[in-house]
Amino acid sequence: MLLKSESVQLKGVAIMTMVFLHLFNRAENVDLCINSVYLFNIPLTSQLAKFAEICVPLYLFLSGYGLYILYLKNNNISPSRRIFKLYLNFWTVFIIFIPLGCFLKPDQYPGNLLNIVENVTAWRTSYNWEWWFIFPYIILLSFANVLFKCIRQYGFWSIVVSSKPVKYFDEKGKEWITFVPLMAQKTMPSVWVKSPKPYKEPVFMIPLYEGKRVTAYMHPITTQTNTKNLHITGSGCIYYFKVKGEDVARAFWMSSAIGVKAMLKIVFKDFPEMKPIIKELDTDKFYEDPTMLIKKFDEAK
């Protein structure tokens, strides 16, 4: 267990890391420096600034750790008092610096009444975007007692399992992708391991098809190969299906073109109705869209 003094020291490291990030995360700031060391034709300072982005998560983790220890002692972290104290500190800085903004940049500060309310409450910190983390932190404080109670009674993953699906915006595809937490097998079934054990904790998957009795999912995976002179990152996925009423999703496809029908027979050994479907399976179409097999499974009687 961390001592309070050690936690404070680590918070100090997080703060100094944040200062480093804000000084050197912009190319125009780095260009003002005398850069002598480069990594992949990029100043080492800029490369290190990327790692400095850990500052807010680190500070948030340390704050949550300390609050949880306090909750274990008192069964309450007094969120209202902490939020009020946070707002007082925030408003103190606000009162000192925002009037200077009104004097130096009257076209930007204070704006209309809505801008003032948004910034005073930290709902939308357009006066200083570096204050973005204040309102999310306030939300976490508001629900901290409930979250800590669930963690103490049911474990950390109870928060993940009971939470709503996570949405991620794919910049390349310009679309939102939904991830849902599920208990799932660690690997594909095989001749040697016909019923693989599930992960100890839920993993996040992308829903692909939802039928009356079965749902198909995709679990993205990433591989890395590192040598002295080489760094290769690869990506792939494992396809899963989950029969309604079952607790664990079963893996059924992992981009292996060898012996696909024999492998699928092992996967669906508990479902006799799949034998003729697998026998007549068009493997070319299956390679293009593995979920087509799950659709046939859903329609089978």
Rank of each mutant, 00 (worst) to 15 (best):
M1Q: 10
K4V: 12
V8W: 03
L10M: 15
K11L: 06
M16H: 01
M16F: 14
T17Y: 08
M18C: 13
V19C: 10
L23Y: 07
F24K: 11
A27E: 15
D31Y: 03
D31R: 09
I34Q: 14
S36I: 12
V37Y: 11
L39N: 00
L39F: 14
F40L: 15
Q47C: 10
A49I: 09
A49R: 06
A49Y: 08
E53C: 02
I54H: 05
V56K: 00
V56N: 04
V56H: 01
L58R: 11
G64I: 00
G64D: 01
Y71H: 12
Y71C: 02
L72V: 03
N74C: 08
N74S: 13
N76T: 11
I77W: 05
S78T: 09
R81W: 08
I83D: 11
I83Q: 10
Y87H: 02
L88R: 04
I96S: 02
F97Q: 02
L104S: 07
K105E: 09
Q108F: 13
Y109H: 05
Y109A: 10
L114S: 10
I116L: 14
V117F: 14
E118P: 07
E118Q: 14
W123H: 13
N128D: 12
E130T: 12
W131H: 08
I134P: 06
F135G: 13
F135E: 07
Y137D: 01
I138S: 10
I138V: 15
S142I: 04
S142T: 02
F143W: 04
A144M: 04
A144P: 01
V146C: 03
L147S: 12
L147M: 13
F148Q: 05
F148W: 04
K149W: 06
K149M: 03
I151S: 07
R152K: 11
Y154K: 15
F156P: 09
F156D: 06
F169L: 10
D170K: 10
E171G: 05
K172C: 02
V180Q: 04
P181Y: 06
P181E: 04
L182V: 08
Q185I: 02
K186I: 10
T187H: 14
T187A: 13
S190N: 10
K197Q: 12
P198F: 00
P198L: 02
P198Y: 06
Y199L: 07
P202R: 06
V203Q: 10
V203E: 05
Y209I: 07
E210K: 14
G211R: 01
V214P: 03
A216P: 00
A216T: 02
T222A: 14
T225E: 09
N226M: 11
N226I: 14
K228N: 08
T233Q: 14
S235F: 12
I238A: 00
I238D: 03
Y239P: 08
K242F: 05
V243N: 01
G245Q: 11
G245F: 07
E246K: 15
F252Q: 11
M254A: 08
S255C: 09
V260F: 05
K261Q: 09
K261M: 11
K261C: 09
L264K: 06
K265Y: 05
I266V: 12
D270K: 10
F271S: 08
P272Y: 00
E273W: 02
P276E: 13
D284W: 00
K285I: 00
K285A: 12
D289Q: 08
D289N: 13
M292N: 07
M292T: 12
I294H: 08
K295M: 11
A300Y: 08
K301E: 12
